[in-house]
Design a protein around this nucleic acid. Structure first.
Lengths: 271, 271
DNA sequence: TGTTATCGGTTCATATATTGAACCCTTATT
DNA sequence: AATAAGGGTTCAATATATGAACCGATAACA
């Protein structure tokens, strides 16, 4: 592992629930020596990625990240192009909704929206979504680059008793998703949490990310599932358009087929 | 120089005007070997800080920076606390206004606001402000940590013919600023651009950043200067309050003295 | 008030990770 | 068909990262 990678890795320990970290705590978190960790933090500080709270000596994220984020969002305005659709999706389903982006072999959480409808909500407080254990991840496997599945097979971490554990079952699952046009994942990351996702495409015509809805097992009825699927289609279309892409006709056909047995004209109407 | 520092340094080459950079161009920009640069970019890509445009192979900033920025802004909500005051400042002066933050020995541009009043505007498209050649930088030297001036003296880069070049002149300039409560810099970074700045403080009681107005030489009359100064005071007070700090009484006194010869009651009124 | 533990920061010999010239492969240009 | 330019890779040479031990300050404690 390169020293640069280790240095960059330190940044991932900062979060909203843990916004400031001292040298000793960072050593424990990163599992590395104090001198090493100190030098890494120095490098980050020199570059403006962290700064020290002058009174407590604790480290926190620095101002440089704001500029990078600004540049990124101006260059690739993904977040802004997803927010409206995500709000509508959360509103229509009454469930927490997420948009994630695929970068390399990793699914990054981009933004999320909670619905106030229920007091029990599926809160996913992670930065990256495992490919094999989330609806968003499975969606990327089904509609994303073909080599992604190899990567996933080599990282089949077991989060719960129902997490997919064999390459065969993973491939089977992905095949089912390809046919239905929706990814489903139930209790594979956290027991009780049910996820449904649809792919998002950009101007390259390739998968750029996923939009998903996370619900809780106790209220995940067939009725709710259908509502979620219909609204995922709407959200996926809108975000895909905002990101400069188009939904492949073959996928639209799969969606139509998936929902045709219930109420086909609703689907057409929403197009 | 550590390899981590070199790696992090690559990120600074991305900007709104140069959002995507190929391997070769990055080598030229960074002045380093292709193999080295490639590995650095790989490390950044693994961490999600850059991603490759799949069609052109060009590198651009990745999604990880968005999450860091979100965490930073939740932790230290500087940007949100500056935006309103900045808009008012741009509106009142008819000039482009900036807020910058001091982190370590560097002044980072946080956010800016352009006024539509004039078609010629001072556009400052840089991420970090030189300490000795901008009003914001001089402001930090005058009201920030004492050791900053040593750092500035060792980095007296000459941008124009009028950039301060000697330690003596720099110290003299800083002294003047300390007495007036306002920093002024004319044509030191870019000829034609005139800047005026006031300090911002946070909850630690130390200087946290500067608020500044950039105008163009041709319309920088004494009248405009007074308008800018009055509105800088208002902006500095508001942002300082939002950042959890207070303006030192001694500074308020200096501001009052600086403007007393013209129209003292206006100052009191705006307090 | 003296003792101990914790924390941020520093040093230096050791050894490991970084470096860059040269190389390959593909694509675009002439 | 030859050439140039860009992305990506290899391997010996060596510059750079590492961590045990140490320092000084502060806070907890008896």
């Amino acid at each position: 592992m390169s020293s640069a990678a280790k240095t960059l890795g330190l940044l991932a320990y900062f979060s909203i629930t843990r916004p400031e970290i001292g040298l000793s705590q960072m050593c424990k978190l990163a599992g590395r020596d104090k001198a090493t960790t100190y030098r890494h933090l120095q490098a980050l500080e020199d570059a403006g990625f962290v700064e020290q709270n002058p009174t407590t000596k604790l480290y926190r994220l620095g101002p440089a990240v704001l500029q990078l984020a600004q540049t990124r969002e101006v260059t690739v305005p993904r977040k802004a192009g997803a927010e409206h659709a995500l709000m509508v999706l959360a509103e229509a389903t009454g469930e927490t909704s997420h948009v994630s982006v695929l970068s390399g072999s990793t699914i990054y959480a981009l933004t999320s929206c909670e619905s106030p409808k229920h007091s029990t909500r599926a809160i996913i407080d992670i930065n990256t979504f495992p490919l094999h254990a989330t609806a968003s991840g499975l969606c990327a496997l089904a509609f994303g680059p073909p080599d992604l599945i190899e990567y996933a097979i080599n990282n089949l971490e077991a989060f719960t008793a129902t997490t997919v554990q064999t390459p065969e079952l993973l491939k089977e699952t992905v095949d089912t998703i390809r046919q239905s046009g929706f990814a489903w994942s139930g209790g594979a990351l956290e027991i009780e949490v049910q996820g449904l996702a649809a792919p998002i495409f950009d101007h390259t015509g390739l998968l750029a990310g996923s939009v998903s809805v996370a619900s809780v097992a106790t209220r995940f009825t067939p009725d709710l599932q259908e509502i979620i699927q219909r609204n995922l289609i709407i959200a996926s279309r809108e975000i895909t358009r905002n990101w400069g892409g188009t939904i492949p006709d073959s996928l639209e056909a799969k969606w139509a087929r998936s929902l045709s047995n219930t109420n086909p004209q609703l689907l057409e109407f929403s197009k």
